[in-house]
């Protein structure tokens, strides 16, 4: 019955932390090698890389916001719907020009994020429920704005937004560039600003952060606004790419984003995680999809199956970590 905090436990924790940090990049590297070996130029070509990058860019935008939310100890289920709503509003606003096409979705989605944030941060409601409500609300709004999907708003081809959205710089599409810029800004904000540090602190110990005098409610509210705005940017870019706004897109995007964030090593319980990990997580998901597409004979279901396995492995490792933490944790003498 002797149970003492011992060296093996520490080693195990180190190993688990290593897997958490390096596991996803390693899996990605293996996957790239295997893909190249198996499919040669069909896989390892600039064109295919461009496809993967474009495909990943929307998810990167959403997942960057999700990373902030999850590190703060929350969750945002509404981003898939907000993504679709933003697309619809972009197409709807395009009738008044490019500025309206961008401003309308940003304002509406920003307000949805603000509502989420205030309910979670100030009213202290559970993020799962609040953002589930927002998921339904935003999807409903997207359908209402397009008369239950019967009316598809089209974005005129001569609009500045269309031209910018479909532009390519050095062969790289605008969504990819936007995603890269947002990612870079996100890195700086999360790691080098007081706001970013507060996000970590709140996720690590909300009560501790409060007692340390950090503006907990304000920071919590901010991460949901950020998440909604980034989902909106992704929606705007999709609309610009496709010249239309469809209310049906983005279903399950929120779960895909959560999966990418967790595969990237961010703890679902909050307090720890990195944006670089999230980027790797997104790429991993997308490369798996791409490889399975290459095989051709395999059904698309295998994409989800493979993603599921990755997610499970990561979560198992995290659970091992968490158990080590609470098991040997300090008891509170009464």
């Amino acid at each position: 019955m002797t149970r003492a905090g011992s060296a093996p436990a520490e080693h195990r924790e180190r190993a688990a932390a290593l897997v958490r940090r390096a596991g996803a990049p390693l899996a990605l590297a293996v996957l790239l090698v295997v893909g190249t070996a198996a499919f040669g130029d069909g896989f390892a070509s600039a064109r295919n890389a461009g496809n993967i990058a474009l495909d990943s860019s929307y998810l990167v935008l959403i997942a960057v916001g999700m990373t902030f939310v999850i590190i703060s100890g929350g969750i945002d289920l509404s981003v898939g719907s907000v993504f679709a709503l933003a697309g619809v509003l972009t197409a709807y606003g395009a009738q008044w020009g490019s500025v309206a096409a961008v401003a309308l979705p940003l304002v509406v989605c920003g307000l949805i994020g603000l509502a989420n944030g205030l309910l979670v941060g100030r009213a202290r409601m559970a993020p799962f429920i609040v953002t589930l409500a927002a998921l339904l609300f935003a999807r409903g709004l997207a359908f209402a704005a397009s008369q239950e999907g019967n009316r598809v708003h089209l974005i005129p081809a001569d609009l500045a937004l269309t031209r910018i959205g479909q532009a390519r710089v050095l062969g790289v599409g605008a969504p990819v560039l936007v995603a890269l810029v947002v990612f870079a800004i996100g890195l700086v904000v999360l790691n080098r600003t007081r706001f970013g540090q507060a996000v970590y602190a709140i996720g690590g110990s909300s009560e501790g952060a409060e007692l340390m005098g950090l503006p907990v409610a304000r920071v919590k509210a901010s991460v949901y606004v950020l998440s909604a705005l980034l989902a909106a940017v992704a929606g705007i870019l999709v609309a610009a790419q496709t010249s239309s706004g469809l209310p049906t897109i983005g279903e399950g995007r929120e779960l895909e984003a959560i999966a990418a964030v967790v595969i990237g090593g961010t703890l679902l319980t909050g307090g720890a995680g990195t944006l670089v990990g999230t980027l790797v997580g997104v790429l991993l998901l997308k490369v798996v999809q791409n490889v399975i597409n290459q095989i051709g004979t395999l059904d698309a279901y295998y994409q989800q199956l493979a993603s599921g396995v990755f997610l499970l492995v990561v979560v198992l490792v995290q659970a091992g970590l968490a158990r080590r933490r609470t098991g040997g944790g300090r008891g509170v003498p009464t």
Partner: peptide
């Protein structure tokens, strides 16, 4: 009332981190 996942330095200075150019930590 500290945050165990964060580094010692970050815990020490949470909320009043020294800032340099552009207001970055």
């Amino acid at each position: 009332n500290l945050v165990p996942q964060m580094s010692v330095a970050r815990n020490l200075f949470l909320g009043r981190e020294p800032r340099g150019r552009l207001g970055l930590i």
